[in-house]
């Protein structure tokens, strides 16, 4: 493990509402968490970036459609291009797809109902910043909380995601109609990950599951490994 605490930036758009939950879960795991306002364009000195859930810019037009023009997204794009780990949770996943940092789109749930419930996930790839080192096939209990979580992508994109092992999490019992039961995907480098379920809401026994910590721990390990041996520059 890294000797220095991993420093994670948690991006806050107007309407984001999960930033403190994410920060708290990361701090519990020994990381430093720092809220980053969406108007700030620089993400220097961060070892990982999380785009948490909520309703960025009111979800007007489409979830993420306005947020992708926030100044911080230029920084996120650059940070991701440099190999920095970026995780979008729920609304953060929607922002990453709208920003074209991840392929596909999230549309209204199949049943047209807002879903707020525990789901069972299966880890189907360990080549992402959120699942590296996690045993393939491992089942995790992590809740979802969304209206637009129905992942969709064209056939060519889907084939690429599958062939390249970029579907990182799947629902065991698909709640929202996502194609191929997709709950989370990553980019080519594995450093940009998006998922609809909320790991921070499965971070304490009082919340009914601690399985989200498996994912957050993997993220911190990935970020920590990038620090060594040179340490933070």
């Amino acid at each position: 493990m890294a000797l220095v605490a991993v420093r994670v930036g948690v991006v806050v758009f107007p309407g984001t509402n999960c930033e403190h939950d994410v920060a708290e879960a990361l701090v519990e795991l020994g990381a430093e968490a720092q809220l980053v306002w969406h108007g700030s364009a620089s993400l220097d000195a961060l070892d990982a970036v999380v785009l948490p859930g909520g309703f960025a810019h009111g979800d007007y037009l489409r979830p993420g459609a306005i947020a992708r023009f926030s100044p911080v997204m230029a920084g996120v794009r650059e940070y991701a291009a440099g190999g920095g780990p970026v995780v979008g949770i729920c609304n953060g996943f929607q922002v990453l797809t709208e920003a074209h940092l991840l392929p596909g789109a999230l549309q209204k749930n199949k049943g047209l109902t807002f879903l707020c419930r525990m789901t069972e996930l299966e880890v189907t790839s360990d080549r992402s910043a959120l699942t590296a080192g996690v045993e393939l096939g491992r089942r995790l209990l992590v809740p979802v909380n969304h209206f637009e979580g129905n992942y969709t992508a064209g056939p060519a994109t889907l084939r690429r995601l599958e062939d390249e092992g970029r579907v990182v999490l799947r629902y065991v019992d698909n709640p929202n109609g996502s194609v191929h039961d997709i709950a989370g995907i990553c980019n080519e480098g594995g450093n940009v990950v998006g998922l609809m379920p909320h790991p921070e809401r499965a971070s304490h026994e009082l919340l009914g599951s601690t399985d989200g910590l498996v994912l957050l721990r993997a993220l911190l390990a990935w970020a920590g490994a990038r620090l060594e041996p040179a340490g933070r520059g």
Binding site: Q107, K108, N109, K110, G111, L112, T152, G177
Partner: peptide
Amino acid sequence: QLRPGISDPQGATI
């Protein structure tokens, strides 16, 4: 409009 082939749960419900 949603592109052809993209499922439209809203339209289907209506």
